[in-house]
């Protein structure tokens, strides 16, 4: 007996490809949904109203450089000449000298707007999440600087090492489609 190999026509080939692609797409979607269902569709975030600016976000994240960064809400900022998030409590002078700055990595830049206002910007690549600037801003200024988990960096571990270490229980779960704390609400 000889086996005769049935040749596949072009239409059959395309149909099979289409079915395979649809199956893959379906599988991928189900997989992604499943993964989100496992995590409850939520991610870690910091409640700025509970945060005590203890500095542990910088040291307890599993990443080499913490996924927690300082964020700046410009609507709340006073554009202060003497920004207590930027300057040490009793600076030698009000300029960009390293000895005057509170940030250990010079992640905050200061730009003159008009007398006596300055704009402050956070370079998230340099920010290590130590919260020293946030402490200065919240304790003595308007509180426009605050700590947030950056979800472009966060691995969203099931058991967040910083959340475990946080002395203020400031780590909360937020919906993954709205993962940042709205301070103006």
């Amino acid at each position: 007996m000889t086996l005769k190999k049935k040749s596949m026509g072009r239409r059959d080939f395309l149909n099979n490809c289409g079915r395979g692609g649809a199956f893959l797409l379906l599988g991928g979607t189900v997989g992604a949904l499943g993964a989100r269902l496992v995590r409850g569709g939520e991610v870690w975030q910091i409640d700025p109203n509970k945060c005590t600016k203890c500095g542990q976000c910088a040291t307890h994240c599993v990443l080499d450089m913490s996924a927690v960064k300082c964020m700046h809400l410009y609507k709340m900022c006073g554009y202060c000449e003497l920004c207590t998030g930027y300057f040490e409590l009793d600076p030698v002078s009000l300029d960009e000298g390293a000895e005057n700055q509170v940030c250990p990595t010079a992640a905050i830049s200061r730009k003159y707007i008009e007398d006596p206002y300055f704009e402050y910007k956070i370079d998230t690549d340099l920010c290590i999440g130590c919260a020293r600037c946030v402490k200065g801003c919240v304790d003595y200024g308007n509180g426009s600087l605050y700590m947030q988990v950056n979800h472009e960096l966060c691995k969203n571990c099931n058991e967040c090492a910083i959340a475990i270490a946080c002395p203020a229980d400031a780590f909360i779960r937020l919906p993954a489609n709205n993962p940042y704390f709205d301070r103006l609400v």
């Binding site: 003497l82 003595y140 200024g141």
Partner: peptide
């Protein structure tokens, strides 16, 4: 005068 010293005015505002 700006500053944290007792006789000065401290902080942003």
């Amino acid at each position: 005068e700006s500053g944290a010293g007792a006789s000065k005015f401290f902080g942003c505002c």
